[in-house]
Write a protein that binds this DNA or RNA. Sequence first.
RNA 1: GGGUGUUUAGCUCAGUUGGGAGAGCGACGGCCUUACAAGCCGUAGGUCGCAGGUUCGACCCCUGCAACACCCACCA
Length: 921
Amino acid sequence: MTKYSPQDIEQAWYEKWEANNYFAPSGKGEAFSIAIPPPNVTGTLHMGHAFQHSLVDALIRYKRMQGHNTLWQMGTDHAGISTQMVVTEQLAAQDIKPMDLGREAFVEKVWDWKEQSGNTISQQLRRLGASLHWETERFTMDEGLSRAVLEVFVRLYDEGLIYRGKRLVNWDPQLKTSISDLEVVSEEEAGHLWHFRYPLADNPEEHLVVATTRPETMLGDTAVAVNPDDERYKHLIGQEIILPLTDRRVPIIADHYVDMEFGTGCVKITPAHDFNDYDMGRRHDLEIINILTDEARINENAPAKYQGLDRFEARKAVLEDLEALGLLEKVDDHTLAVPRGERTGAVVEPLLSDQWFVDIKPLAEPAIKAVEDGDIEFIPKNAENIYFAWMRNIEDWCISRQLWWGHRIPAWYDAEGNIYVGRSEAEVRQKYELDETLTLSQDPDVLDTWFSSALWTFSTLGWPDQTPELETFHSTDIMVTGHDIISLWVSRMIMMTLRFIGEVPFHKVYIHGLVTDAEGQKMSKSKGNGLDPLDIVDGISLDDLVAKRTANMMQPRMAQRIEKATRKEYPDGIMAYGTDPLRFTFYAIASRTRTVRFDMKRVEGYRNFCNKLWNAASFGRMHIDGQEDDLTAADVELTPVDKWIISEFQHVTAAVTLAMETYRFDLAAKAIYEFVWDEFCDWYLELSKPILNDADTPAAIRRGTRQTLAKILESTLRLAHPFLPFLTEELWQQLPVCVRTDSDTIMTQAYPIANDDLINTEAEADITWLKKVVSAVRNIRGEMDISPAREIPVMFANGSAEDRARIERFESLLKSLIRPEQMTWLGPDDEKPLAATGLIDEMELLVPMAGLIDKEAELARLDKALERKSRDKERTAGKLGNPSFVDKAPADVVQKERDKLVELESALEKLQQQRDSVASM
RNA sequence: GGGUGUUUAGCUCAGUUGGGAGAGCGACGGCCUUACAAGCCGUAGGUCGCAGGUUCGACCCCUGCAACACCCACCA
């Protein structure tokens, strides 16, 4: 028999599945659909993806096997900013600037790059076993989706929900584009708080002292604000100061926004370069002076001396000049939150510019209601808080980006700046009845990437056309995604879909945890602790891993640290574990916590589990292959062991089904793991050996066991298939057709359904008893250091009639499991030999000590048991001695305690007798 | 500043209507027993973060506190 080797089986099966179109909706049964959160088309698979898509694939395969008309819609996102950045960097390596190429040529380069790298992520998803419907794969920039984008933009504009306006927006000076609030990340950084003196206009000898973290913006100050209740400054309100370094006089205004406690209580106001100052500027009708270019250099609105300086150079210059004038009072250290562009890491500037916005509140209201009403349910429930917090305080969405890669905004301007919006220039001319000679130019901006992905669930199904796919598969059933994307994407899908389709995009939102490394650290390129899921599947040498993690590192010191940590954590690199073990690990760690630690030890454990299942199947086939007659015979007799494992299978099936219905992948994985390993392998297979191997076994019983073994093995493979697709397919195909369906694939076979009629409590009680007897002997052997090979005499005493019946019924099983030299019953009058003993409920089990047992060891073992039992007894007796317990607790609980006490007392008595007799030796 | 989550064995985590604390890994001891040493058998190890409260009874419900993590908003 060959060994379990995932590399040898996994890829071939995927190719076969795909070639046979097994991923396509069956066209039969109730629809079940999930839209993939579209990965960046030029991206590569990271651990978060692998985790997320593994979860979805299990759901999809589960539903498909249950007979649903199942669609997992594939597609990719054009990812405006990051894709444009990647291509720009590539060009930079060839010393080409995008500007040199021009817009058209640049966009063409991006398409080239997409063609070249767009397959990477698709191939990686295939390696994961993802049963995506590739045939209808979409791309946010393809023709159909672009049409949906146009449609939505034009309709929203015509309804007055999209507008163009001059607003203060987050500006990334490196990319030279606006970005949304959600694309700005603020982190605390060490900085300074500078205190300046601003001379009063009426009395230049006196000053107001303002404190700022951004000295250079003083060139754009148009007011100084104090709190109207501040006694220190009340008398100055309405006066003016002279703004140093410029010749401007600016007013001292009063506003409650100013915190008297902070700094000096005086705030310089720069409406063009700070969001709060901008609001204040509007309240007080202040002049707005923009002093920065789109590259964040000082522009012509500032004194000539500073023009052209970068903002940080300008800071230095301003500080030097103020100090020279004696106006710099002091500098304090100060930590402040510095806003940076998520992609570039550049410090973001608030900048006044013309942008397009969605008037979001009218869209948000029904979207909030849909979740409040339960039309959309978040799992776990409390993830709704993130959604509500964002949606209830939502600000208009800036949707224009000053990029070249993306959906061009469908707006045209004439020479006078009039705006015309339509699906094309031709439509615009017709719609607005424009003269043919009128020159129009299209808005150069593109839409925020999230604008197109907001339409994802319905645009991928053919909207704006009313396609059968849209009819069948929308609303989708569930969206599986991370919490980081709730505001960015989930909320916008809900808003747009409700608006344009009139139904929710999905009924449920499953929020999974964030995958971290074994130390709980977020995986990131800069930390060098990231893992490529395929390196776990295929394995990677240490040197290659180090090279991968330290590639493109700007700082050599950081690279050194990463190399050291990597060599320590993976001294032998990573071995090739295969896809199934990796997937099973994801299910096992997918609990309800916010972060899930990824530990290679777990993968190893589940690789071992796969190996276990492989070997169990090998064993099974030894008794299945070539036994067609036995396997198809009708004349069979099932033993209690068969009935027990069949019963257990109903339990595990019910547990897995419940877990899947409640999205508890961890519990599903656990149930399967425990059934396969602890019940099927450790007990059933062991118990079936004597029956199958013993030539004296009656034929009907042998056939019964053979059929049960085949049946449970085959069913278990189906039960586990959503989680271990490759391994289960391989093993299932190895089974003879007489014990399975004659099919090319397990993928489309029926998922097991728990059948309560097959639950057999009698058989369960039998096997529970049998396990206790076997465990009691094993415990004695283990503790007494008796070799498993050595046969020992075993005696029973004090058993009930049922115990006697069971000993008889399971005699041959017991013989093979506990290797007794002989098994005998002691009568009530027989003298008990000195022995190591075990207790199975009322029945005593004795292993005589002569030549076998060490007295001291046996005493220690008995003492341990005595101590444990008497602790239990004390607790139980204590409870029953408490009158309020007896009075107030439910009768059945009280009775249970009483029964327990009786049991414990009898057990204690027996143990004590045994101890006494051993001690007296 | 506001909010959410976490705290259970050495490590990582389960514990689903409050009724005798579990798993995997690791540790220790013994086994090449004819599916599997990627295995088998046995053993040890926990005041369930701390302090109160409710209850006959709390890992579980309530209050407060602490530590850690994350999210949102940011005082120039």
